[in-house]
C-alpha cells in the first residue's frame, strides 16, 4: 500500500485517539464522594483511545516501511521520512507511558502533536530525497533517531510543564474552572516531565556525541568550527546544559515545583531555536 495512504490512516487514527482522550476527560464524571479514590470506574473512551493509538503506531510503521521500500533510502534521507519517524517516536513513548499512568490530558496533547507533525510531513511528501550517501549511513540514522526521540520526549515534558504552570496558577487563584479537574495532579505532571527529561538527556547526548564524532572524523562536509559556531549547535548545547542542570537540581538538590517547570520552558525554546535557526550547510536533506 502507498506510504501516503498509510500515513493518512495513521493521521486519522491519532486524531481519533486525541478525540477519545479528550472525551474521556469530559465523560469521566467526577467520582461520587463515597467512591473517591477507588478509581474502579471503567472509561470506555480511554479504552478506544489506546486502541486507536496502537493501530496508528502500526499503520505508521507500515507507512515508514513502505516509504523506505519506495525510495530505497533510510527514512532520514528526507524531511517527510524524518517527520514520520518523529511522530511515530512520540506515539510509542506515550503508549509506553499510558501503560504506567493513565493521564488522558497528556495523551490528548501528545496525539494532537503527532497530528500536527504528520500534517506538516504530508506537506513535505514530495520533498527531495537527499542524494548524499552519508545520510543513509547507519551512524547518521542513529544520530537522527536519538535526536528525534529526545525531541519527542522534550515535547511531552514541555507539555507537562505548561500544564503544571496553568494548574498551579489556577489552584493559587482558587479557580473553580472545571477544566482544572481534567488535569493530572501537579506532582504527577512534575514526575512525568522529569522522567521525560531523564530519558531525553541521554538521547540528546548520544545524538550530539554521534554528530561531534562525525564532524571530527570528517564524515560530514564542513569544518568543526563551522559546525560548532552554528546557531543550531549552540542552542542544542545550551539545551543539553539546561537539562543537565535540571537533572542535577532535581536529583542532587531535590528541587521540585514551579522553578523546574520554567527551566523546561526555556529548554523547549532552545529546542525550537535549534530546529528553526539557520543550520550549517551540511545539515540539510540534499
Amino acid at each position: 500500500m502507498n506510504s501516503a495512504i498509510l500515513t493518512g490512516i495513521a493521521f486519522a487514527l491519532y486524531l481519533s485517539a486525541a478525540v477519545c482522550y479528550g472525551a474521556s476527560l469530559f465523560l469521566d464524571a467526577p467520582a461520587a464522594p463515597q467512591s473517591i479514590g477507588t478509581g474502579t470506574s471503567s472509561n470506555r473512551p480511554l479504552l478506544y483511545a489506546v486502541r486507536f493509538l496502537a493501530a496508528g503506531i502500526l499503520s505508521q510503521f507500515l507507512a515508514v516501511g513502505a516509504n523506505c521500500a519506495h525510495t530505497h533510502h533510510s527514512p532520514f534521507a528526507s524531511v517527510y521520512g524524518t517527520l514520520m519517524v518523529a511522530a511515530w517516536a512520540i506515539a510509542i513513548v506515550y503508549l509506553a507511558w499510558d501503560r504506567r499512568a493513565k493521564m488522558p490530558a497528556v495523551g490528548a496533547v501528545a496525539m494532537l502533536t503527532d497530528c500536527i507533525i504528520l500534517g506538516f510531513a504530508d506537506s513535505q511528501a514530495h520533498s527531495r530525497i537527499a542524494r548524499d550517501p552519508v545520510l543513509s549511513h547507519p551512524v547518521v540514522s542513529l544520530h537522527v533517531l536519538a535526536i528525534i526521540g529526545a525531541y519527542g520526549l522534550i515535547l511531552v515534558a514541555s507539555g507537562c510543564a505548561v500544564m503544571y504552570l496553568i494548574e498551579n496558577r489556577m489552584l493559587k487563584k482558587h479557580s473553580r474552572n472545571s477544566i482544572l479537574r481534567k488535569f493530572p495532579p501537579l506532582t504527577s505532571l512534575d514526575s512525568i516531565a522529569y522522567q521525560c527529561i531523564a530519558y531525553a538527556t541521554p538521547l540528546l547526548t548520544i545524538g550530539l556525541g554521534v554528530a561531534i564524532s562525525l564532524i571530527f572524523a570528517g564524515g560530514v562536509k564542513g569544518s568543526p568550527r563551522e559546525w560548532f559556531l552554528g546557531a543550531q549547535f549552540i542552542s542544542t548545547a545550551i539545551l543539553l546544559t539546561l537539562f543537565t542542570l535540571y537533572l542535577a537540581a532535581r536529583l542532587a538538590v531535590g528541587w521540585r515545583g514551579v522553578r523546574l517547570q520554567y527551566i523546561l520552558l526555556i529548554g523547549i525554546l532552545c529546542a525550537f531555536a535549534a530546529f528553526a535557526l539557520p543550520t550549517a550547510a551540511a545539515h540539510h536533506f540534499n
Binding site: P30, P33, G37, L171, L186
Partner: peptide, 22 residues
C-alpha cells in the same frame, strides 16, 4: 442526600496537587 462536604472538597483539591497515596 449524597452530601459533598468540606472533607470531600479537601480531598478533591488535594488530589489535584498530589498522588494521595504518596
Amino acid at each position: 442526600r449524597g452530601a459533598f462536604s468540606i472533607g470531600h472538597a479537601a480531598v478533591d483539591l488535594a488530589a489535584r496537587i498530589f498522588d494521595l497515596s504518596e
